[in-house]
Design a protein around this nucleic acid. Structure first.
Length: 400
DNA sequence: CCTCCACTGGAAACCTAGGCTC
DNA sequence: GAGCCTAGGTTTCCAGTGGAGG
């Protein structure tokens, strides 16, 4: 990298300046981009709108649960309807408020509450309050100002998985305290229906008053979505049909994920531009798919905590699948070499499960009869990926 | 059919780092 | 500064277990 001849840098700059770039508008391929029109989701848009519309007349809409795989438009559709609803609400006298939180990003109950509070115009300190106090402040505000609130909890399954359903219970119960002037309606979005199993039956029946399922996009739908984005994002004629077909095909194979399709296209465009290609072909899509996977692995490894890295490195020492005991012994050895106090085996067993979840190792539990029961741990990423991830890591590179 | 290995994985307690209120 | 609170990682404890070998 450091030995780039100055001219090649100049080439890069020149290409942008002289407009020879393949991109016309890169932003149209970003995740946050909301297209002016949402295609193939008319039924879902209408359904969501129908369920939430009583709020305009001041009545409490049913709670709603939206379910569908990633990249099926759940968030986009919900945000779209919520925005339109808020706009319409402004023209009327009512005090309709909407709030949106992504439970995976907010990650804790308190942060979820504080983001909701911010959207509702309630002041909550970052920390320092008990959960119940934070909740009371929100509820009091809603009651006193007769707020009609629609709260969207995106990736609600993360909330339930990490903290249980207490918060949801509080929300559903809070409505009983309000008089008819105020209400809270919950809209939960999830790509995992199984989270419902761990809900208290009372919470479930309340949350699940209405349910909408978003089907995956078909190949043809993906193609047409891509075509439309291509028109905005690229200079005309720069993406060939084979590329679009492959892109749609690959995304359809992954449960009709439109976000995935658009990501592939963006990375393919960047790759093609970098190699000075005239247009984007199916080759670039394939390369993009590999590149996205490589980046995902690299990032996953680099963002591991130190003991996670050590555990992964310990696994990588074994060619064949190994049991927890041996991996733990290797891990202990590595930790001591760094002068770190090794964690307990129980914890390392947990770390191994986390690595499994990330797809970096496979660690199914198997029984070998008299030889006991253990995880059967095997590295699932190339050795190379681990070496690459650690070579810039001041601590880990001493072990390589 | 029974035993018994080498763990698993749940639960609770503990610790640290942070931040609020009074 | 005391006395609360939380998040998040960890340790400790321990009951539970699939299935090969007896």
């Amino acid at each position: 990298m450091s030995s780039q001849p100055p001219d090649s840098l100049n080439d890069i700059f020149e290409r942008v300046l002289t407009g020879k770039s393949l991109f016309a508008n890169r932003d149209a391929l970003r995740n946050e981009f909301i297209p002016s029109q949402i295609h193939y989701r008319d039924d879902q848009i209408k359904a969501v709108a129908q369920i939430l519309s009583p709020s305009l007349a001041g009545h409490k809409p049913s709670n709603l649960l939206i379910y569908g795989k990633t990249g099926t438009g759940k968030t986009v559709v919900t945000k779209y309807v919520i925005n339109r609803l808020t706009d319409k609400g402004k023209t009327l006298s009512g005090s309709l408020r909407t709030a949106y939180v992504n439970a995976r990003i907010a990650s804790t109950e308190y942060r979820i509450l504080s983001e909701l509070a911010a959207d509702l115009g309630v002041n909550l300190p970052f920390t320092g309050l008990s959960l119940s106090e934070a909740f009371n402040r929100i509820a009091t505000k809603i009651k006193e100002s007769a707020v009609k609130a629609i709260l969207v909890l995106d990736e609600i399954d993360f909330l339930v998985k990490s903290s249980g359903d207490n918060l949801l219970y509080e929300f559903t119960r809070a409505n009983e305290e309000f008089n008819n002037e105020a209400f809270i309606t919950l809209v939960g979005i999830s790509n995992d229906l199984k989270f419902k199993e761990s809900l208290d039956p009372r919470v479930l029946s309340s949350l699940n008053e209405e349910e909408i399922v978003f089907p995956p996009y078909t190949v043809d739908e993906l193609k047409s979505i891509l075509q439309e984005r291509i028109q905005v994002a690229f200079v005309p004629g720069k993406v060939n049909d084979a590329a679009v077909n492959l892109c749609a095909g690959m995304a359809a194979a992954e449960h009709g994920d439109a976000r995935r399709a658009v990501d592939l296209l963006r990375v393919a465009g960047e790759l093609a531009e970098r190699e000075n290609a005239e247009s984007i072909g199916d080759f670039h899509i394939r390369e993009a798919s590999k590149s996205i996977e490589r980046d995902r692995v690299l990032e996953a490894i680099q963002s591991l905590p130190i003991h996670g890295k050590l555990t992964l490195l310990a696994v990588s020492y074994f060619q064949e699948a190994e049991n927890t005991g041996h991996v733990y012994a290797k891990y202990t050895d590595l930790a001591k070499r760094l002068g770190l106090e090794p964690l307990t085996q129980r914890r390392v067993s947990g770390l191994l499960s986390e690595l499994d979840l990330l797809g970096l190792v496979s660690a199914p539990v198997i029984s070998k009869g008299r030889m006991g029961r253990s995880k059967k741990i095997k590295l699932e990423v190339p050795q190379q990926a681990i070496t690459n991830s650690f070579k810039d890591d001041e601590t880990m590179k001493t072990l390589l």
